[in-house]
Design a protein around this nucleic acid. Sequence first.
DNA 1: TCTTTTATATGATGAATATCATGTTTTACC
DNA 2: GGTAAAACATGATATTCATCATATAAAAGA
Lengths: 143, 143
Amino acid sequence: MLSNSSKYAIKAVLYLAVNSSPKQRILAKDISVPTNIPKAYLSKILQELSRHHIVSSLRGPGGGFYLSDENRAISLLEIIRVIDGGYRLTSCMLSLKDCDEEHPCPMHDLVGGTKAQFVENLRRTTVNDLVEDIAEGRSFLPL
Amino acid sequence: MLSNSSKYAIKAVLYLAVNSSPKQRILAKDISVPTNIPKAYLSKILQELSRHHIVSSLRGPGGGFYLSDENRAISLLEIIRVIDGGYRLTSCMLSLKDCDEEHPCPMHDLVGGTKAQFVENLRRTTVNDLVEDIAEGRSFLPL
DNA sequence: TCTTTTATATGATGAATATCATGTTTTACC
DNA sequence: GGTAAAACATGATATTCATCATATAAAAGA
């Protein structure tokens, strides 16, 4: 469904969303331990996210990663796009070049509605939305 | 979403569904060309499908691959299971071990409905159903 | 300005997936 | 039975993805 890297990215962003603030930076290794993401690999992902302004960071003593208010308004789809590229989620289920709404392939027709809706949900849902879900007990974050 | 191998498997099965019958066997290479699937790789997939009775085959001159009536009643989910294993499609979006309906993770809650519905569609839809869709013009098979 | 603490950049290794190549078995037909 | 046509089995290579390791740059504080 998603690459491992994207899952890690979302987990890390959610961890930051819950535990960090512009004044409360968090080290990569302090995300790595509770989330069970290998430290070196997580660092690489965080840097990629930082470069694309999905997360914020500060170097030097007292530095680390955190989310700005802008970061919290970012949608899940944007995170996935940065890591997996734009194609993986939105492409045709059978990878047919000419498949579209006009000319749907058999699978497209079958799952088109649900998949399109799924991607649309990802586009519409921000980091903040998920944090609210957690805060209000509608979902939980088992790290 | 699906592995490449699963996509190839479904394409090949659909090709057989439209073009083969127990008396009209088709060679791997004659599926390979119109579907743009590498011949040697396709052969391996067809053999895997044959071993699991997803497709039927006959060796020797005049032999080849085809679908029996039983094969046509098989669901897409079974095909995907044989190639990708049971886990890939149904597992939690964030690969969290403890995520379930009682304890949904944030992504689960977000896409749970649509994904569950999607998998259920795959479970319910047979090869025959897709062929009907093609025959009646509700979808097409761009090879 | 020196040292420490952090992120960043780059490259190396390992694992999984996709692809290719070659040999073996079965079956039909002469 | 011998021969050719096919599936079947097995292993080798390549490519992508996940993981690790090491060196560099920036920032803070002494």
